[in-house]
Computed example of a mutant assay.
Amino acid sequence: MPEVIMNGPEGRLEGRYQQGSGPNAPIALMLHPHPQHGGTMNNKVIYALFQSFQKLGFSVLRFNFRGVGRSQGKFDRGEGELSDAAAALDWLQTWNPNASQCWIAGFSFGAWIGMQLLMRRPEISGFISVAPPANIYDFSFLAPCPSSGLMVQGDQDTIVPQESVTKLVNKLSHQRGIKIDYRMIPGATHFFTEHLDQLTQTVDEYLNAQVPEVAAKIRATR
Rank of each mutant, 00 (worst) to 15 (best):
M1W: 10
P2I: 12
P2G: 14
P9A: 14
E10P: 00
G11D: 14
L13F: 14
G15L: 15
R16Y: 14
Q19A: 15
P23F: 07
A25C: 11
P26I: 12
A28W: 10
L29P: 10
M30R: 04
L31T: 08
L31S: 08
P33N: 13
H34F: 12
H34K: 10
G38C: 11
V45Q: 08
K55L: 15
L56S: 05
G57C: 06
G57A: 07
S59H: 05
F63K: 07
F65G: 06
R66C: 07
R66S: 11
V68S: 08
G69R: 06
G78D: 06
S83N: 12
A86P: 05
Q93F: 03
T94R: 15
W95H: 10
N96H: 03
C102I: 12
G106A: 05
S108V: 02
A111F: 00
W112H: 01
W112C: 00
M115I: 06
L118A: 01
R120W: 00
I124K: 00
S125C: 01
S125Q: 01
F127K: 05
F127W: 04
S129A: 13
P132G: 04
P132H: 02
Y137I: 01
Y137T: 00
D138N: 11
S140M: 03
S140F: 07
L142V: 02
D157N: 03
T158H: 13
I159Y: 09
I159V: 15
V160A: 03
P161T: 15
E163N: 15
E163Q: 15
V165F: 09
L172W: 09
Q175P: 04
G177W: 12
I178L: 08
D181E: 15
M184T: 05
T189Q: 02
Q201A: 14
D204K: 07
L207M: 09
E213Y: 08
A216I: 10
